[in-house]
Write a protein that binds this DNA or RNA. Structure first.
Lengths: 150, 150
DNA sequence: ATTATTATTGATAATGGTTATCAATATTAT
DNA sequence: ATAATATTGATAACCATTATCAATAATAAT
């Protein structure tokens, strides 16, 4: 039994169905502060619904990315990470600081207004200049965290 | 026989040796305008030196990344791309516009000065605030290119 | 030079995250 | 109900990247 939270309509609008696995995955993404990989999500979901398989997690994430609900990140450690996009998350717009040694990730929001202003300006110019329809951006810093600096 | 171009010293300084495969790989990276994957590089190198294997290409790229000579990018199509870092490239500092449909990549330099100023400011603040030693950054836009917009 | 030490190499196999396959099942439309 | 369609999970396949390891090359020591 599925409670219609608006997600139902959103899925139907794209020709998809809102199923229990999909709802469970959305629930995990909505209630985390972390940067989860597909397997991370699988493990959480699996506790409550042992029947849900890893394949379904991957498939659902693909759909959510395609729907613009989720953004797929690569932090360079060989697995993708998934976060709800700004519009669907309670987290504020932020970027990432990534430790290349231990893969620790810190969210930051410093200068975020300046950033957004610049990103917006750049986005406008680039769309026109290259006839590109820009759907997202990514910005991150790499380095060594406190612990890994030695 | 290896011509000492400064690379030799640079390698020795880190305990490495400048060999023919390494020189060949550097040569490819120095003479391309594209965003080559390990296999792309392998194929070019292989034409002149059929003995050089793919493993060596990967290994060399790792070393170059670790030396700060090369930056490793992920454009979301399942393979990494490698570019000489600003200091070693004749290309100007730039960022990327990536088509999520066909993986076409466009370099852009619009507002690059504003960007650099902001990046620098952010970098300074973040290093202090989180005691992070920042070594690099990445910024890119995603979207649909002219051809893929339909 | 000759030899000892150390770094590098390439072929091959292994790894591991992600995808394709496909028959079974659940959902929606008729 | 029944037909049409979407979703599922188990399994196998895929494929970029890494680990292994004996052979070879480059450097240092004698």
């Amino acid at each position: 039994m599925i409670v219609d939270t608006g997600w139902h309509k959103r899925f139907r609008g794209q020709g998809y169905r809102l199923t229990i696995p999909r709802e469970a995955i959305l629930h995990v993404l909505s209630n985390t502060e972390e940067h989860l990989s597909a397997e991370d999500i699988y493990m959480v979901v699996h506790q409550k619904y042992p029947a849900i398989g890893l394949t379904t997690v991957y498939r659902t994430l693909d759909i959510l990315v395609q729907m613009g609900v989720v953004f797929k990140f690569d932090f360079g450690d060989g697995r993708s990470r998934y976060e709800l996009t700004e519009h669907f998350s309670r987290k504020k717009h932020h970027h990432h600081l990534i430790c290349t040694m231990c893969s620790r990730i810190i969210d930051y929001t410093d200068f975020i207004d300046d950033e957004l202003e610049l990103l917006d300006r750049t986005k406008k110019t680039l769309s026109k200049k290259h006839n590109f329809q820009i759907t997202g951006h990514m910005m991150q810093f790499y380095g060594l965290c406190e612990k890994c600096k030695t």
